[in-house]
Design a protein around this nucleic acid. Sequence first.
DNA 1: ATAATACTTAGGTCTTGACCTAAGTATCAC
DNA 2: GTGATACTTAGGTCAAGACCTAAGTATTAT
Lengths: 113, 113
Amino acid sequence: MVPPATADAVFHALSNPTRRKVLEQLSVGPATVSELAAPFDMQLPSFVQHLSVLEDSRLVKSKKRGRVRTYEISPERFKVAEDWLSARRELWEARLDQFDQYVKHLKEKESES
Amino acid sequence: MVPPATADAVFHALSNPTRRKVLEQLSVGPATVSELAAPFDMQLPSFVQHLSVLEDSRLVKSKKRGRVRTYEISPERFKVAEDWLSARRELWEARLDQFDQYVKHLKEKESES
DNA sequence: ATAATACTTAGGTCTTGACCTAAGTATCAC
DNA sequence: GTGATACTTAGGTCAAGACCTAAGTATTAT
């Protein structure tokens, strides 16, 4: 069981377009703060806050070497979101299948008469 | 391409534990406002706001018959989240596979010497 | 017709989120 | 060791989010 606070942080991190674009960039490969910030029309301190949100959610991790901080994707964390979504899907698909079966059953009965 | 605003709304809707619990409940089957609200220690108007957020994101839909409003899951919308996540995963997995290949390649070279 | 039920509307508070500017620190390049 | 670079810290604003209470409307039950 994933603590709910974890899912909160992960989905919240994903809810902002700037942060999603950062994740899209990092999916391609690691990058530094300035590289990540370059495409955005935003002051650096504001942008860095987004990186903090991402890091707090653990969707990414970073390391500083000298004065340069490099970020990379932390793939394990995405499972929190993926697993929650697929658990929902399994539940309702099972239910809808059951409903389909029921409809099919009704139709068979109908054609008997 | 899904407009980013859509992903914003979907992930934002998913970021709150009350709303996720509602979605868990609705995955099991449709339910009315009062049925959904019952487990939560929250005033009804506050709770109904959560339902509005979910409906705005189109993760759920509702219909009113008489004085009772019934909610149900709207499965298509979940694909927005699922697709975004799986697109990221594909990218970084391709990259990490490539890296694995590279390491393997290095090891082969090493054993030649 | 009256009362109870099932929401809805209309506010108000308090916290969090998303930005900003200005100034600071730690490295690196010369 | 001086200046440029790459962030960091420390504030401050303004909008959005998550709750609340009080009162309203539309249905249904008696």
